[in-house]
């Protein structure tokens, strides 16, 4: 038993953390979010690092790694609240690899892995990065379809989350090709990756809150010395650590013990998407008035955390799956 990362995984995480800290500084995130766009140059650098195809087989030009490695990237990009097409790109490719027909895989996977073509992923209700995508992968209940650019009727949706582009996609498309079980497996993996983005957001909101609580003084003391604030921060850590254990476990299950994935993914998505929302709300409270201003960066985290609760199901929906899977 060893619940820790190997050297390569640690290096991936550290590289991603350093890359994001350097490239997605708060003012960069703010500028991109306010302009509602991604940065082509930064995306090119991420592509050069091989991130879009991290979990895609080498025969399709990917890195041939697993969901754990993808989750580490998603977590770090969430921590930076980075506006980027990473999730839509990497997850549309992953869906195709897990549940796509051979024809679709051969036609699209190399382009998606190298990012010479663009992917989008979502459900019938909400899709990430649909505009301009060459291939859109859309899930509904236990079905999934692939929509090519020419057939895609995209209705853009302006959401509160300005770090990503969203839309709703019309009903056209062909079945993805995989069996029901493969489609469920793709969906579970996508849920775990979004949960990892939430985990990163939650950790960032906690770190910002702790730093602020140690520095901000009222009544002649740092507010973090008051239990009303410090206990809230302890509860935030509790939520973050629960989410972290469950997200890493689900990623491991996807790679090494697929029979455990349905329950593991449901638990991870339920806990992490709720935890990020709760922790971001708490972070606004800890920051007080400044946390409610547009000028402070917290609201970008809060809004993305909210969007993640709507992507591929939030806490209540995934807890219902958990109840079913434990035999109720």
């Amino acid at each position: 038993m060893d619940f820790g990362f190997n050297d390569e995984q640690r290096e991936i995480k550290q590289t991603a953390r350093a890359f994001c800290a350097d490239r997605f500084k708060p003012e960069v995130v703010r500028n991109l979010a306010e302009a509602e766009r991604y940065d082509d140059d930064l995306w090119t650098q991420m592509v050069e690092l091989g991130w879009p195809g991290i979990a895609i087989d080498e025969r399709f030009g990917g890195q041939g790694l697993g969901l754990i490695e993808l989750v580490l990237l998603a977590e770090e990009l969430g921590y930076a609240c980075a506006p980027s097409p990473f999730l839509a790109q990497a997850l549309s490719a992953l869906a195709l690899q897990v549940a796509g027909s051979q024809a679709l895989q051969e036609r699209y996977l190399p382009g998606l892995a190298s990012a010479s073509s663009r992917g989008a992923v979502g459900t019938d209700e909400l899709c990430i990065d649909p505009e301009g995508a060459d291939l859109l992968v859309l899930f509904s209940d236990d079905q999934a379809r692939a929509v090519e650019a020419a057939d895609a009727e995209v209705q853009g949706l302006l959401t509160i989350d300005q770090t990503r582009r969203y839309g709703v996609v019309g009903p056209a498309g062909e079945p993805l090709g995989g069996e029901t079980e493969a489609i469920a497996g793709a969906r579970d993996r996508i849920a775990v990756a979004i949960a990892a983005d939430s985990l990163g957001l939650a950790q960032r909101a906690l770190d910002m809150s702790v730093a602020y609580a140690a520095e901000r003084r009222q009544f002649e003391r740092p507010i973090g010395a008051y239990q009303g604030v410090s206990h809230r921060c302890a509860e935030m850590l509790w939520a973050v650590e629960e989410a972290r254990s469950l997200v890493y476990y689900a990623a491991w299950a996807a790679d090494s013990e697929p029979a455990s994935l349905p329950l593991a993914a449901a638990m991870a998505k339920a806990r992490a998407s709720d935890a990020a929302w709760e922790v971001c709300k708490d972070a606004v409270q800890v920051h007080g008035g400044i946390g409610f201003t547009w000028e402070h960066d917290l609201h970008f985290l809060l809004k993305r955390a909210r969007a993640n609760t709507q992507l591929f199901g939030g806490g209540a929906r995934h807890r219902e799956r958990v109840a079913e899977l434990v035999g109720l």
């Binding site: 702790v210 140690a214 740092p222 010395a225 239990q227 410090s230 206990h231 302890a234 509790w238």
Partner: peptide, 12 residues
């Protein structure tokens, strides 16, 4: 919670 706040999070 005091212990978590002080020793893990490093709050004052």
């Amino acid at each position: 919670k005091n212990i978590v706040a002080e020793r893990v999070l490093g709050l004052p």
